[in-house]
Amino acid sequence: MVIGTFMPAPAYAQFPTAQLGDVVPRDVREVYEKGLQYLAKSQRESGDWSEGSYAGPGVTGMAVMTFLASGEDPNYGIYSSNIRRGLISIVNSQDPTSGILGGNSGHASMYNHGFATLALAEAYGVVNERLLTTGGKKLDRSLGEALELAVRGAVTSQKKNSYGGWRYGADAKDADTSVSGAVMVGLLAARNAGVKVPDEAIDRGVAYFKSMTSSSGQVAYAGLGGFDNSTPRISIGCLVYAVSRRKDMPEFKATLAALTNQMDTSGGAYMSYGNYYQAQALFQGDVEAWEKWNKELIRQLKAKQNEDGSFSGNYGTTVETSLSLLAMALNFRFLPIYER
């Protein structure tokens, strides 16, 4: 995947109870609030989050979703300015012609587009757009208009792709399941938000994942074959099948079985990325398995969190912190994409 001074603790927002009736664990609330404080103070004046090569609207989208995922009020809450400035930055990054968020080419282009589209979809309908102003001026596009344009950009990119998926650049001819997962979840979130997404685009994306899934539930990365027990890729495939409402497919059942047979939160260089997707996939497929896995995740993240509230890792602190917190966000069950 490509894509200072500790703040005094503000008063806690009113953390909700989960929709299934369970109180959000105290450790989750404490770890999450420290992480939000870190993200709030590390946001740039321009509204984005940036750390060297880990920058762009996808990174900003991850951070914005982190605030929304715990139920923070984007209009009048203590972090409302952070959320709104992040959204303004995302909309301003959009190419008005192609609709691609963050540029049409480059190693992280469609990663940025997928995660930024997801953030716009999750914010759409909950943000008072009259408050989205820069220097007193309204944005060139509303969130709804930006989201519709982003969907069009993703669909246009897919039409150029013989595999039916996506790769790094919008004009790429090959595809991989990691980038394709980011874009597919963004499209599915847009559809859930009420934006028209062509059925053909979803069907082609699902067919691509089907072609990359083995009977044992392993999901290949790119090209032909190459199946292995990659937890992130298995989780991405499982989530795509679930959110696209294809739980009747044998590929969904196979990927879910593969996940529940190797419930691991400790793995490798892509740990935060894998945890982000595995949390959602398990929650969509097997809540009991997710509850067991989630307890271990909370324990590990509490031990791993830095004093300033951030998380460290290969992707830089903004991405690592956002992905780590979002992996815990199922405990709040606020984002529409997290609904079963």
Rank of each mutant, 00 (worst) to 15 (best):
L87F: 12
N112W: 10
G77V: 12
R84H: 05
M65G: 00
R152N: 15
R84I: 00
G86W: 04
G144A: 06
G114Q: 03
V64H: 00
L131A: 04
S70M: 06
F67L: 12
G114N: 01
M110V: 00
S105D: 13
S70F: 07
V64P: 00
P74L: 06
N104C: 04
L132Q: 03
A69D: 01
S93R: 10
V91H: 10
A119S: 12
G103R: 02
G144L: 14
L147Y: 13
L101N: 00
L143C: 08
S89Y: 15
G86Q: 12
Y124V: 11
V126M: 01
E145H: 07
A121L: 09
G106S: 08
E129N: 03
T60A: 00
G56V: 03
R130M: 05
L139D: 03
G153V: 13
G135L: 04
N128I: 05
G56S: 10
S142G: 13
A146L: 06
L131Q: 08
L132Y: 11
L147I: 14
E148H: 14
R85F: 09
S105Y: 06
N128C: 03
S89I: 08
E72F: 01
G77K: 08
T133H: 00
F67A: 05
E72H: 09
L101S: 05
E145P: 00
S80L: 06
N112I: 07
E72S: 08
N104W: 05
P57L: 05
L120P: 05
N104R: 01
S80N: 12
Y79N: 05
G135M: 01
L139Q: 13
D95Q: 11
L147G: 13
F67P: 11
S81W: 07
N104Q: 02
Q94H: 09
G102R: 08
H107F: 09
E72V: 03
R84F: 03
A63N: 10
F115K: 09
Y79H: 14
